[in-house]
Computed example of a mutant assay.
Amino acid sequence: MELAVAPLCRRVSDLGKPYRLLRSFRPLLFQTSEHLAGSQAVGDIIPYSTILHFLFTRAPPELKSPNQRAEWSVARYSQWLDDHPSEKDRLTLIRAALEAYVQEVKARQGKEFAPVYPIMLQLLQKATTGA
């Protein structure tokens, strides 16, 4: 992406926060979920909601992302995200998806959660408590 944008601007670092987010996220793409949760960039440069959305991609199908839970298309969800730039709003929607997953597991009398769920819950708690 940097190579594609470079001809359009003198220094890509002048792009500011979006560029820092991209640069910080790139090395995390192939890390374990545990490593992601412990990254110093999370919460500082990379919003918690961004990492949580990424972790939904690593979750089993029964742990549905917020847009899947709401039965929204990706385009509709993308528009919702554009209309709700507040991290608090995004985390509220993510929390609802995680809570619905817990209820689903309990309803089927499951005894275990997906391995990524506790990591997501930990990140959500850090995000909402500022810990």
Results as ranks from 00 to 15, higher is better:
V12M: 15
A41G: 08
D89V: 03
Q103N: 12
R26C: 04
A96K: 05
A75G: 02
A4N: 12
F30T: 00
I119K: 14
R11P: 05
T50G: 12
A127C: 03
N67S: 15
A114E: 12
R108G: 02
C9D: 09
S49H: 11
V102W: 10
L124E: 13
Y48I: 07
L63Y: 13
A96P: 10
K88S: 13
T32H: 11
A127I: 01
G16W: 03
V102T: 08
I46G: 15
S13Q: 14
L124K: 07
Y117N: 02
A75N: 02
P66N: 02
Q103V: 04
K126G: 06
A96C: 12
P66M: 01
Q31L: 07
Y19W: 15
F25L: 02
T50S: 14
Y101G: 01
H35I: 01
Y19E: 13
P85T: 04
R58S: 04
A59F: 11
P66Y: 01
I94S: 01
E71F: 09
E87L: 03
R26G: 05
S24I: 00
V102E: 11
K111C: 15
V74A: 14
K88A: 14
H53Q: 06
S13G: 11
R108Y: 03
W80M: 07
E62Y: 04
A100D: 09
T32D: 13
M120E: 05
M120W: 06
M1N: 14
E2D: 10
F56L: 04
